[in-house]
């Protein structure tokens, strides 16, 4: 990757050589009542365009902290993080918000839909912050809802929908802005098995159809198994990354980065 690409906006660049996310030696230290807690102690990883990866770990392992960093909701204490080629440390608060808006889509365990707001308006919300006009917001939100099979629920409010449907609305909202990375934090945690399976199927399909990279954050090995790559986090460190494990296991002498590309679904 060249310097000039780092500052360019993602919309112009769908070149697969730019990783969706690239983290180098990330640390995150919290001050809890005067005591320093190291939630992340040096994490390096690379998520390529269109990859489907799962960050797995027990609670307290630092996987949530890692997800917040990858989603640009938080800043690392040290280390370098590039999202779609943009180095985040130098960005102002509003540039960071813009980066989130354009390149990251979030799906949360508890859906985080605005109550008393229709599915369509919930889905269109990221476009509001992008300054898109009403007509554009409507048409894109409609398309996104149809993509998750909820074209018939556009006027419904969250309270009028099942949990599975709500999470699909949340997925539509995450995708409406055509992000590079979809970060899903325990997306099935509040759903029954059937709805959970359906949500996972949608994520799987969207990943292969639209080429958005999906990063699943979960403690559930079964859910994590949906991903083609598992990154195990424990005590603020990456314990095991199936992509690099494969590389070393194959012992073909390939560079780690090349091996990571091998993990891509393309």
């Amino acid at each position: 990757m060249t310097r000039s690409e780092e500052t360019a906006w993602p919309a112009d660049l769908s070149i697969s050589s730019i990783p969706a996310i690239e983290a180098v030696d990330l640390t995150r230290r919290y001050q809890l009542e005067g005591v320093a807690v190291d939630a992340l102690r040096g994490v390096s990883l690379r998520i390529d365009q269109g990859e489907f990866a799962a960050i797995v770990g027990p609670s307290g392992s630092g996987k949530s902290t890692l997800m917040h960093l990858l989603g640009c909701l938080d800043r690392p204490t040290s280390g370098v993080l590039r999202v779609n080629g943009v180095e985040m440390s130098g960005l102002s608060e509003s540039r960071l918000a813009e980066l989130r808006n354009r390149t990251i889509g979030f799906v949360f365990q508890s859906f985080h839909l605005l109550a008393r707001t229709s599915a369509l308006d919930n889905v269109a919300l990221p476009l509001v912050y992008r300054g898109a006009g009403r007509a554009e917001r409507r048409s894109r939100a409609t398309a996104a809802l149809e993509a998750v099979g909820l074209g018939h629920r556009m006027g419904h409010r969250p309270s009028q929908m099942s949990g599975g449907e709500q999470q699909r609305v949340a997925i539509a909202r995450a995708l409406v802005g055509e992000p590079k990375v979809l970060l899903a934090d325990e997306p099935t945690g509040n759903l029954d098995t059937r709805n959970g399976a359906e949500v996972m199927a949608i994520l799987d399909r969207l990943n292969s159809e639209s080429g958005v990279a999906v990063v699943l954050v979960t403690h559930d090995q079964e859910i994590a198994a949906h991903a083609r790559r598992q990154i195990h986090v424990r005590d603020g460190l990456i314990e095991l990354d199936t992509a690099t494990a494969q590389a070393t296991g194959q012992a073909t002498g390939q560079a780690t980065e090349g091996a990571a590309e091998g993990g891509r679904p393309l």
């Binding site: 918000a97 979030f106 985080h112």
Partner: peptide
């Protein structure tokens, strides 16, 4: 608070 957090995650800037 949660709504504000969500809006920020979706790209709301402080001034929004």
């Amino acid at each position: 608070t949660r709504e504000i957090g969500l809006r920020k995650a979706l790209g709301a800037r402080q001034r929004d």
